[in-house]
Amino acid sequence: MVRIINYKERQKEDGTSFFVLEVQGGIEMVLSKVTGSFYATAKKAYISSTFDEQTCAGLIGTEMPGNIIKEDCESFQYVVKETGEEITLSHRWVYVTEDAVKPKQEAAKYEQNVIANSDVFSKNGILEHAE
């Protein structure tokens, strides 16, 4: 599940504006590489919308089924607001519905358990039809 926590106004290339919904996943515990201590965090993503500002404001707090996943993308520069450090990223966080996540998880589960049984194949190189 994800929750709508905010909205933001964005500009299209032609100058017109639209609103995106900011969604946040559940709490996750991450181990710091620097301190060795755990800290709590949550993944965030933005979803484009066709809603007006009033509707977006009314949707804050709404929970929706789905997850936020890491997606590879073309590298880009990002400035960490807290430190001013500029870093290069090659991923982004995106919202996906539960239906989009389940087939990938199911496929991965079966891919790991596939073992070919060589007894079902001909060993003499001659095609023989089953009777």
Rank of each mutant, 00 (worst) to 15 (best):
D14H: 14
G15K: 14
G15Y: 12
T16V: 05
T16D: 13
T16F: 10
F18V: 08
F18S: 08
F19Q: 06
F19N: 15
F19W: 13
V20S: 07
L21G: 04
E22P: 01
E22R: 11
Q24I: 04
G25N: 11
G25I: 01
G26C: 06
I27D: 14
E28F: 06
L31H: 03
S32P: 12
S32T: 04
K33H: 05
K33Q: 12
K33G: 09
K33A: 13
V34Q: 11
V34T: 15
T35W: 00
T35N: 01
T35R: 01
G36K: 02
G36E: 00
S37P: 00
Y39R: 02
A40V: 02
T41D: 14
T41R: 12
A42V: 02
K43R: 10
K43L: 12
K43V: 03
K44E: 05
K44A: 05
K44W: 02
Y46V: 00
Y46M: 07
T50G: 13
T50P: 07
T50E: 11
T50S: 12
T50Y: 15
F51R: 07
F51S: 04
D52T: 05
E53S: 10
Q54T: 05
T55E: 08
C56N: 09
C56D: 06
A57G: 04
L59A: 05
L59P: 03
I60E: 04
T62E: 11
T62N: 07
E63V: 03
E63Q: 13
M64L: 15
M64V: 08
P65Y: 00
P65N: 10
P65F: 00
G66Y: 01
N67A: 13
N67E: 13
N67Y: 13
N67F: 15
N67V: 03
I68E: 03
I69P: 07
I69Y: 06
K70Y: 05
E71F: 03
D72W: 02
C73W: 02
E74W: 02
E74S: 13
E74A: 14
S75P: 15
Q77E: 14
Q77G: 06
Y78F: 11
Y78N: 09
V79T: 15
V79H: 00
K81W: 04
E82L: 08
T83H: 04
T83D: 06
G84E: 05
G84D: 05
G84N: 06
G84W: 09
E85I: 11
E85K: 14
I87Q: 03
I87E: 03
T88R: 07
T88N: 10
T88E: 15
T88P: 00
S90W: 03
S90Q: 07
S90E: 07
H91V: 06
H91C: 04
H91P: 00
W93S: 10
W93N: 13
V94K: 13
Y95M: 00
Y95A: 04
V96M: 05
T97A: 06
T97D: 08
E98M: 02
E98G: 07
A100V: 01
A100K: 07
K102L: 12
E106Q: 12
A108E: 05
K109C: 03
Y110E: 09
Q112F: 14
Q112M: 11
Q112A: 14
Q112R: 10
N113R: 13
N113H: 11
V114A: 07
V114L: 13
V114T: 10
V114N: 06
V114Y: 12
I115A: 10
I115N: 08
I115F: 09
A116P: 00
A116Y: 14
S118Q: 09
S118A: 12
D119P: 00
D119F: 11
V120Y: 10
F121R: 05
